[in-house]
């Protein structure tokens, strides 16, 4: 089913391509949303990525899964855009150093809250926290914890070795945790 749709799409049939991507659209949009951090950009980026996929589908080799290939394009599109903008996407270290808010945090009584007791506020800040991760770290977390992919699949999507997936995930989660703590303390 999928392979016939792919073949037709290669020949340029738009409606086949649309049928092909209809089940992935939502995930594409959500990956883009988490990567970019806002709905407007998410829409632009996911559409751009899908158009790229349409143009490049002739290069798609059947040996990898279509979704894997598609998500790779989405993530790369978002990363390119983020790089292009040279917007200060704060990584964890910068976030702490730049804001110079550590002193404020420490002087505060609520310093170093234990996350588990702060359930309500957390969810609200999670998205902000994600945005403070570096692009590479963010994409790993998105694929693993939001989309539920396995280490192998993530390695294939991002084209990195599994060891790197593992270490990036380690780093990202720890960073995320620290960012959340700081955000909570700031509130």
């Amino acid at each position: 089913m999928e392979s016939t749709l792919i073949e037709k799409s290669i020949q340029g049939d738009v409606s086949s391509f649309e049928k092909l991507i209809v089940q992935y659209n939502r995930y594409v949009y959500n990956i883009a949303y988490r990567m970019m951090g806002n709905e407007e950009d998410a829409k632009d980026m996911s559409q751009e990525a899908l158009i790229k996929a349409y143009k490049a589908i002739g290069h798609f080799k059947m040996e990898s899964g279509f979704s894997t290939w598609l998500y790779r394009i989405v993530i790369n599109t978002c990363k390119d855009e983020l790089r292009k903008r040279k917007e200060q996407v704060l990584s964890l270290d910068e976030a702490i150093a730049d804001n110079a808010s550590l002193q404020d945090i420490i002087s505060d009584d609520k310093a170093n809250p234990i996350l588990i007791y702060e359930q309500v506020e957390l969810k609200a800040t999670l998205n902000d926290a994600l945005n403070k991760l570096s692009d590479d770290n963010k994409s790993v977390v998105i694929l693993k914890d939001l989309m539920g992919y396995s280490y192998e699949e993530i390695g294939e999507i991002l084209q990195i070795p599994i060891g790197t997936v593992r270490s990036r995930l380690n780093r990202s989660r720890t960073s995320l945790k620290s960012i959340l703590k700081i955000q909570l303390a700031e509130q």
Binding site: N25, R26, Y27, Y29, N30, Y33, E39, A42, I114, L115, I116, L122, K123, L126, N127, V141, D145, L146, G148, R173, T174, L176, K177, L180
Partner: peptide, 17 residues
């Protein structure tokens, strides 16, 4: 804490198109 963060990430809702 780690478990909790991961759990929360998993609970993040998918946005509708």
């Amino acid at each position: 804490e780690l478990k909790y963060v991961v759990q929360m990430l998993g609970e993040m809702e998918l946005k509708a198109l």
